[in-house]
Structures are given as structure tokens and as C-alpha cells.
Amino acid sequence: MIPFDMVEPASLQEAVSLLDPQEPTIRPVAGGTALMLMMKSGVFQPTRLVCLHRIEPEHARITLVADGALRIGAMATLRQVEKDADVAARLPVLKRAMRTLSNVRVRNVARVGGALAHGDPHMDLPPVLAALGARVAIAGPKQSREMPLEDLYAGYYETVLEKNELITAVMVPALDGRKAAYMKVTSRTADDWPSLGVAVSFAMKNGTISDPVVVVSAATAKVTRMKTAEAALNNAAPDDASLRRAGDAAAEEAEVLSDAHGSAPYKRELLRVYLRRAVRQALDGSAE
């Protein structure tokens, strides 16, 4: 690894001020597990890292807010999310997803903010949170802003964040009886980056699916909502025919890429099948 400087600001605002909107070799580092991989491979060679470990501890807290939503501070470790009692009680789908995300050691160190800001479409947290309707809070030098999580992603490893902006928290609304599931499909070994991630959430009204959210990851260049699949599911009974229609719609809509995890035609077939399985799992909690 090439030598660089590391600064350790004591506050979020100081951290933001140490970043440079024009300088790509200066970057923030939270858990560093993903960033270090890029540095080791030479993809990223920093001149300076702005370490966030010493910023205000509140940014690492998970708090229940009044309307039953959870506010997860960006500096919370993934392991904190996995172990959090409120997450377990209110967002079991998130807790389940954490168990398949990388491994215990990485989750001990990696932070929520880093996992969201990295922009790697293979990561598990963005699709799950996007399906749950999460919004991210972002701090910049002048003002803060907030947006739906899926709007954070502009492309493959690309986000809409400015180089001197930091994610401060992610807000996840209460499920309010909605059903949710995340299917991580690995095609080579059990512990692998997914070939495909499918996250769904929806309400059930009188036996029909209502207000569905369908999010696809890993097979696509970025975490993407599947609007036609959502339309196919909306107001439909969760029977085989409707689920097939939704799967077909998603397979048609998704811009699937070929890579070492499988060809695009194959991953489209996986999407067809796993969208169905995701909805079923959301309904009955089965891990098909």
C-alpha cells in the first residue's frame, strides 16, 4: 500500500471541512473494510484519509423515533444493527439480512454509512433498506439534505454524494404490518457476493398485495426499483400466476449484466424465480 496521511477529526463538521470537493484522492474512511480492498488492489490510492472514528458518538447510535421509525447513525457498525433489540423486534428482515452479509469480523468493523456510500451494487444493505423505504441524511459543508435511499445511486460504484458530503444516518420507517423479505442469491459458494439480490416489501389488504416495493441489486449496475414488477404485483393476489407475471416483468425491466457470477440471460431467469420466492418468503417467513 502506498503511504498517505490520515487525519482524525473530532466532529462531523470538522470531517466535512477536511474533505475536498475537487480532490478524489482525499476520502473519508469509516470501517475501511471496503476501502482497504480498493487500496490494496491499487484501484484507489489516497493522499489523505479522513478517519471518522473520533466524531461525535451520537452518529453511531441506533434510536427509535416517535413514529416507530429507526434512525441508524452512519457510524453504527453492521454488527450493532444485527444485535440491536429494536431492529430485531421491528425490522426482522434487516436482522436476517445482516447474518448473510459478509462475515462476523467484517460486520464488527464495517459501518452503515460506508456500506451505503460505497456504491457497490453487490452489497446487501442498500436493497433491503431501499425496499423498506429508508431515507438517507447527508451532511455537507453548507447544508444537510435527505433523500430516498435508492436515489443515492447513480451507477456502478457511483453515488450522487459530493466528495465533501457524508452520510450521517439512515431513517427506516416502521413496517406497520408490511411484509418484507430479502433474497440473496449466491451462485458459486454459500458465502459469496450475490449474483442477484431481490428485496420486496408490501402491505396485504383483503388478500391482495398493496403498495409493493421491489428492489433488485447485484445483477444490475446499481440498486434499482422495479416499477413494472411493482405495478404487476399491486392489487394482485399473491398466487402463482401473479407472481410469475411480476417475475417476468422484472426480468424484462432489469438491465442485467453478465459477470463471473453468471450470464445476463441466466441472472434474468434467477430474477424471475427469486422475485416469486421473495414475495412468498415475505408472506410466510419461509426460507425456501
Binding site: 480492498l37 458459486r188 459458494t189 454459500a190 458465502d191 459469496d192 457476493w193 463471473a260
Partner: peptide, 28 residues
């Protein structure tokens, strides 16, 4: 048998790491 393969593109190995050359783990 099931997962390991060196992938080549123009003679270049495209998966030269354990992230992309998958050996069996405890769940396999």
C-alpha cells in the same frame, strides 16, 4: 467440481482473488 475456475480474458486472469475464485467454506 462446483465452484473453482480461473477465468481468462485475453490471457489475463480476471478473478485472481478469493473474492472471485471461490473455494469451499464451512457452509458448503
Amino acid at each position: 467440481t462446483l465452484s473453482e475456475v480461473m477465468l481468462l480474458d485475453g490471457g489475463q486472469v480476471t478473478n485472481a482473488s478469493l473474492a472471485d475464485y471461490k473455494i469451499p467454506g464451512i457452509r458448503d
